[in-house]
């Protein structure tokens, strides 16, 4: 992420979260946080505990963020933000929290006077992580048609190109879903399981091979030792934790979409 991208990102984030931008120079941003955002990104739970316990007037922080250090004479004027910095990570985390569930409608025009019909879809964005002593991650955006149960991949890429808003457009008609979203969620979970099962898992085989090899090395060290000492068990456990293949399925976000 380049300096300008970070700057734009921050601006959109604060706009969406109702934090007033007081000053913007393109490489420097002064912003008045709301109470809610202060709690999420400022790392000061004790302050908020104190304010709430004593019923004092809250004073959410005013932040000056420098997004391009090379353009600032005095870096002490504010907090330098760059890709990898802790504050940006907290803002990423807050974004995730505040952008988890949506219900969106495609904005269709009814110039022709004909009523437009919108079909309900349910989408879940999954992150699948493969872990052993190495890591690989994949994103799957699965969308299911709540009328006929058809499932499509890359759903997010598809809907992000549409003109969407959180309200139903005038003169449109939304079909009542046949598959209940809670049921659809189960179907998508089954789908993601089967996608994972059909994926190439040679990585796990390779990890097991490395594991066995290192276990053999360890056993060689204690060859002829009748009662293996505790350090053997500790090492063995370390090997298991390092190489044992694991898969994690995480949901990033998802929601309901009414589209043409």
């Amino acid at each position: 992420m380049y300096a300008e991208e970070i700057h734009d990102y921050l601006k959109s984030f604060f706009k969406e979260t109702d934090c007033e931008v007081l000053h913007d120079e393109g490489h420097l941003l002064t912003v008045q946080l709301t109470i809610d955002i202060d709690k999420k990104i400022m790392n000061r739970p004790f302050y908020w505990q104190y304010i709430e316990a004593t019923n004092s007037t809250p004073n959410p922080a005013r932040l000056t963020l420098i997004t391009n250090r090379t353009k600032v004479d005095n870096p002490l004027m504010g907090e330098v933000i760059h890709f990898g910095s802790g504050r940006l990570n907290q803002i990423f985390k807050a974004t995730k929290e505040l952008g988890s569930f949506v219900k969106m409608y495609q904005q269709v025009s009814n110039e022709t006077g004909k009523q437009q019909t919108l079909t309900p879809y349910f989408c879940v964005n999954y992150k699948v992580s493969y872990y052993c002593d190495q890591t690989k991650e994949k994103l799957y955006s699965l969308g299911i048609n709540l009328m006929n149960g058809e499932i499509e991949d890359n759903f997010h890429e598809f809907v992000s190109q549409l003109n969407l808003a959180p309200y139903q457009p005038d003169g449109s008609f939304c079909l009542q879903y046949i598959i209940k979203p809670t049921r659809a969620l189960e179907r998508l979970d089954v789908m993601i399981q089967s996608i994972i099962q059909n994926d190439d898992h040679s990585w796990a085989e390779e990890a097991k091979k490395r594991w066995i090899k290192e276990q053999e090395v360890l056993d060689y060290f204690y060859v002829g030792v009748e009662e293996k000492p505790e350090s053997y068990q500790i090492e063995k456990k370390g090997l298991e934790e390092r190489f044992n293949p694991r898969i994690k399925v995480e949901i990033i976000n998802g929601g309901l979409f009414y589209i043409k």
């Binding site: 969406e16 990423f92 505040l98 952008g99 219900k103 190495q134 690989k136």
Partner: peptide
């Protein structure tokens, strides 16, 4: 509801995509 902001929803997905670890 309450439903979240579409902009933040998209930003969140973009961040995941950007930070994804595509290879072992």
């Amino acid at each position: 509801g309450p439903w979240d902001s579409w902009t933040l929803y998209k930003m969140s997905y973009e961040i995941e995509k950007m930070n994804l670890i595509p290879e072992f």
